[in-house]
Write a protein that binds this DNA or RNA. Structure first.
Lengths: 226, 226
DNA sequence: CATGGCCGTCACAGTTCCGTCACATTCTTG
DNA sequence: CAAGAATGTGACGGAACTGTGACGGCCATG
């Protein structure tokens, strides 16, 4: 079963080169020349991975990346960004964009294949939402609606519990306040983003020592660390 | 001996896609386009697994699932449900439906195969609804339609009994009011969710000390604790 | 036809929880 | 090091949620 890779670049030669190398390596490849087409194809095919050039006409790679993350159908597809400028790297990784890796142009095909292989290898194991999660002494059980620390249950309100599970399910990835508002509170941004801060505080209080898992990423949002 | 898989979907293209992928992976595949045909084929062939779309004309996937579970010939065949809405997941898993796993559309063929492999690997599902349950001094007997506390029978109405058994069979798991309405009151969504509260109160009154098993999870629903 | 049991709904009350604001603290930037 | 921005913290009023008592309708039974 060949993994399917969607290549997005506006230069036909670049696409051709990528396509050739990837097919050679045994992947199924499809391509898109601009952001809109990329989103459409990604939705339709749900590829196993997207290789995405930052520089695109109209909608740039950052926008595409954001949009991919927003939709449930594509939110968990790994993204490898291609960029010409080293300065863009910061944005590509840490931020709300959450690309899985990047490469600066120019790069060797071998480099590209290595990155892809690495990302796909770890992707398989983390695809499904888990019903029960364990991080050291902290256990989160979704169907039972219970969280516990060293076997002792932690009393959480509905919102706190949902906030915790949302962060934990995306462990390692930073979640912006807006993203959390969408996922935890569901209705769109009628609510002040600072409300997230307050709930994080309450959650930290109740978690006690387990709150060490909850990171603040200044200027961006919050993150659950294992 | 190839494992036999029954695919149920009303869209011919979807069936074709599934069929192709499954055959490719070495399974024997048969297909049905609606619920009635699915039940008939399942009875006749006793497949090793059913892949079942929720959205079907006339009889939907939930109904099919229920009916499969009801008949002895098919009651223990693993079922993998396909659903477009994340909101339906709770229903697919938690309830009397007891599907073995689910996938939200769209999904990659690779994902599908992984799930199927996992389910088949663990063999024939062994879970069946227990006819008698005991939680300390509380005994619930389904066929006799009796509940008792320290050997003394508790007089319950039909609705109260069904509410109790529904919660007890899913002991530990929180059930939302909507879930309970669907499960206990069958498909009557015409009813106010607050009605559940009233019946919980009556049930608690009659259970007396045994009502300690009945938890309220604020903002979510109710839960039976062992 | 009357009666009683059961059920669904409603209104009310107590309580919890939530969203917001103001202020304190920490971090970044120049 | 100081200014400004971002985050942590404490407090508060209102909204939301659940428990509870009561009521009327339905149905079977006598």
């Amino acid at each position: 079963m060949k993994p399917k890779i969607l290549v997005v670049d506006d230069e036909p030669e670049a696409v051709e080169l990528l396509e050739f190398n990837l097919k050679q390596a045994g992947y199924a490849v499809s391509a898109a020349g601009d952001g809109a087409a990329a989103l459409k194809k990604a939705r339709a095919q749900t590829p196993d991975m997207v290789v995405l050039d930052v520089m695109l006409p109209e909608m740039d790679g950052f926008e595409v990346c954001k949009n991919l993350r927003l939709e449930p159908a594509t939110s968990r597809v790994p993204i490898l960004m291609l960029t010409a400028k080293a300065a863009e790297i910061d944005r590509v990784l840490g931020l709300e964009l959450g690309a899985d890796d990047y490469l600066t142009k120019p790069f060797s095909p071998r480099e590209l294949l290595l990155r892809i292989k690495k990302i796909l290898a770890r992707g398989v194991s983390t695809e499904k939402p888990r019903e029960q999660m364990r991080f050291g002494d902290l256990v989160i059980d979704l169907p039972r609606h219970l969280a516990s620390w060293k076997g002792k249950t932690i009393e959480l309100t509905a919102t706190e519990f949902k906030l915790l599970t949302t962060l934990a399910q995306r462990a390692g990835r930073v979640q912006s306040r807006d993203q959390l508002l969408r996922d935890v509170w569901e209705y769109d941004s009628l609510i002040d983003t600072r409300t997230v801060d307050t709930h994080m505080r309450r959650l930290r209080e109740k978690l006690g020592p387990a709150s060490k898992h909850l990171d603040t990423v200044r200027g961006v949002g919050y993150r659950f660390m294992e």
